[in-house]
């Protein structure tokens, strides 16, 4: 809100915004003030202030409105699975059969989402396990070992990697990783492992960049004091730098997980999209996102199938809120530690 207020007092910003809202009078309003008497100028200025306040306030309100209505919409559709269609939430969260067009023994559609929930958490956790050592190692190298190479080569490489569209990662996964997995694991090569590897590469730049920021924010005095006590570089990194940077490093990992959990396209291309609980890392599986993107276009609004897809979306939304909550809790804890 601070920046919004600041911008509203910026004449140029207000004027241009004004021109946008009353486009017909744009010429008149931009030439007018210079020829007017002092009192009118003052009035015009205070009017500008007010208009600016309204415009920026409107923008802020719009953002909040979009977020709230988005949550409301997803929740409304997602919850109607349980309240309108009468699906038992337990059956949804623990059922292992996903076949919404058919009904089970109890006469209810088979909408067990457990395979996708398991799939989503598996690829997220596995990709994190893969990515953490590499991200941490790269960040330590870039900050502690060789800052020159870190800023000249690693940083630009990370920025480039962040900008690559996810479909490109998916394509590479499809053409390289899936055949590679197939070559030694047999089967089709699609599955959790291929999905996790693709996600790991996608998440790597995010986690590494944030980890670099976290390590860089550790005061140089900590390192100096540690060296001055006779610590080696590795003792300093291990006992002091990593420890001091822990909140930032955890945030990096959680944000990486959030991204992995929500990624749809690249995963969908390599995971196999079989809505069954995976028996191994190299057999086809599915995630919440992959089933959503595969099915959403094919089901009519208001059907049970459609509602259940919304429920999957609701699970995704809630999980992303949980990830953000975790990041905030970490941030608050580290702030209160420092403020003590």
């Amino acid at each position: 809100m601070q920046t919004a207020k600041f911008q509203s007092s910026n004449d140029a910003g207000v004027l241009s915004a004004n021109q946008g809202s009353v486009s017909g009078n744009a010429v008149a309003s931009s030439t007018g003030p210079s020829g007017l008497p002092e009192a009118t100028k003052q009035l015009a200025k205070s009017q500008l202030e007010r208009v600016g306040k309204y415009i920026t306030g409107f923008c802020a309100a719009l953002v909040v409105l979009v977020v709230v209505s988005l949550i409301f919409l997803v929740a409304q559709h997602g919850l109607s699975t349980f309240f309108v269609d009468g699906i038992n939430p337990i059956a949804f969260f623990t059922g292992d059969t996903w076949n919404p067009h058919n009904t089970g023994a109890d006469g209810m559609p088979l909408v067990g989402a457990l395979p996708m929930i398991v799939g989503s958490f598996s690829v997220t956790l596995l990709s994190c396990v893969i990515v953490i050592p590499f991200a941490l190692g790269a960040a330590i190298f870039a900050v502690e070992i060789n800052p020159t190479l870190g800023s000249k080569i690693l940083r630009p490489a990370l920025e480039l990697l962040t900008g690559i569209p996810s479909v490109v990662f998916g394509l590479i996964g499809l053409m390289v990783l899936v055949p590679w997995v197939r070559s030694w694991a047999g089967g089709t090569g699609y599955g959790i492992l291929a999905g996790s590897l693709v996600l790991a590469v996608m998440v790597l730049p995010t986690v590494t960049s944030l980890a670099i920021d976290a390590l860089e924010s550790v005061p140089a005095t900590y390192r100096q004091s540690s060296y001055a006590l006779g610590a080696t570089r590795w003792q300093t990194i291990w006992h002091i730098v990593l420890r001091a940077a822990l909140p930032g490093l955890l945030t990096a990992i959680v944000l990486g997980m959030a991204r992995a959990f929500g990624e749809a396209l690249a995963v969908q291309m390599v995971i196999g999209n079989a809505a069954i609980i995976p028996s191994s890392l190299t057999t086809p599986a599915a995630t919440l996102t992959s089933i959503l993107t595969m099915s959403m276009g094919n089901e009519a609004m208001g059907t049970v199938y459609n509602d259940v897809l919304w429920s999957l979306a609701l699970v995704l939304l809630v999980m992303s809120l949980v990830f953000i909550l975790i990041v905030h809790l970490i941030g608050r804890k580290s702030v209160s530690n420092n403020a003590q």
């Binding site: 005095t221 900590y222 004091s225 540690s226 001055a228 006779g230 420890r243 001091a244 420092n338």
Partner: peptide
């Protein structure tokens, strides 16, 4: 550096407990 200790201009305690700060060396 174990034999020649150093105290800096800015107090630079580690973000550890008081005990662990002393026990670090």
């Amino acid at each position: 550096r174990m034999r020649v200790g150093m105290v800096f201009q800015q107090p630079s305690v580690f973000p550890l407990s008081i005990y662990d700060n002393i026990a670090y060396g």
